[in-house]
């Protein structure tokens, strides 16, 4: 049986793992390769590396880090941040990334999603979407959630799926860093609209939040950073709790 995935996210800035509260204040949580190995050993199903400084700083690749991670771990990982062209993706895949996530660039030039899925296959194209509620409407945001757009989340997720994205990584800016739980209602709404796997992101604080993301939010995977980095939640106990609630996970 296909299992639900637990995905620690390593936000990377200048080669180090960081995690911010609402993306602004950053704390250093360690060496990415070391963390990646630790998570792989503890039962993480996948890892995501997001270069959160990339959009602003136009930093094109994390090629060197990607190679070190690929050397060290035997579970899949996704790399994102500042990816804006087919060439960017080519370099990351050549260095050992399994998937790439595109965010702002896909909004600016939606054809990028088509180009990537045609060249590399949709299985390695993750479309990351940051959204926030404005007057009751979920609106897509750019550049790590800093720049609002007029684009409606529900329209955009359907478009990215139709353009060939293989997976959706949905981060609620309203929930990210709050540790108050995932945006389950919005997640479930998105899940009813598209037929590609959905990774829930933003708001994980307790084990119950993960249970809710799967049971209420209908997510295929749940992503979190600080609760794992600061050992507030152990992946093994999280998975045991999920299994107790009949949510299939890999043990």
């Amino acid at each position: 049986m296909l299992t639900k995935r637990i995905i620690p996210c390593l936000d990377i800035k200048d080669g180090r793992t960081v995690k911010g509260v609402n993306f602004v204040q950053l704390r250093d949580a360690g060496d990415p390769v070391e963390l990646a190995q630790r998570y792989a050993n503890e039962g993480a199903d996948e890892l995501v590396f997001l270069d959160i400084s990339a959009s602003e700083e136009r930093r094109k690749t994390l090629a060197k880090l990607v190679k070190e991670v690929a050397r060290a771990i035997d579970i899949p990982f996704t790399v994102g941040g500042g990816i804006s062209s087919v060439e960017d993706v080519d370099i990351l895949l050549q260095h050992g990334a399994d998937k790439v996530s595109v965010n702002s660039a896909a909004v600016r030039q939606p054809d990028l999603i088509n180009a990537l899925s045609q060249k590399f296959g949709s299985q390695c194209v993750v479309c990351a979407v940051d959204a926030k509620q404005i007057a009751g409407q979920w609106k897509v945001h750019l550049v790590g959630g800093k720049v609002p757009t007029e684009i409606d989340l529900m329209d955009w997720v359907q478009e990215v799926a139709q353009r060939g994205a293989g997976e959706l990584l949905f981060t609620s800016m309203d929930h990210d860093g709050t540790k108050n739980g995932f945006a389950n209602r919005a997640l479930a709404e998105v899940a009813d609209l598209i037929n590609i796997p959905i990774i829930a992101s933003g708001g994980a604080g307790t084990i119950n939040h993960f249970i809710d993301a799967f049971a209420l939010g209908k997510a295929d995977a749940a992503l979190a950073a600080s609760v794992f980095h600061y050992k507030e939640i152990e992946i093994k106990s999280l998975k045991a709790a999920l299994l107790d609630r009949q949510i299939p996970v890999r043990l």
Binding site: T3, R5, G166, P197, D220
Partner: peptide
């Protein structure tokens, strides 16, 4: 196979 998602992605037995 509706409603199963495509791609089949993740860990399976």
């Amino acid at each position: 196979i509706k409603p199963l998602k495509v791609p089949h992605m993740g860990w399976n037995t």
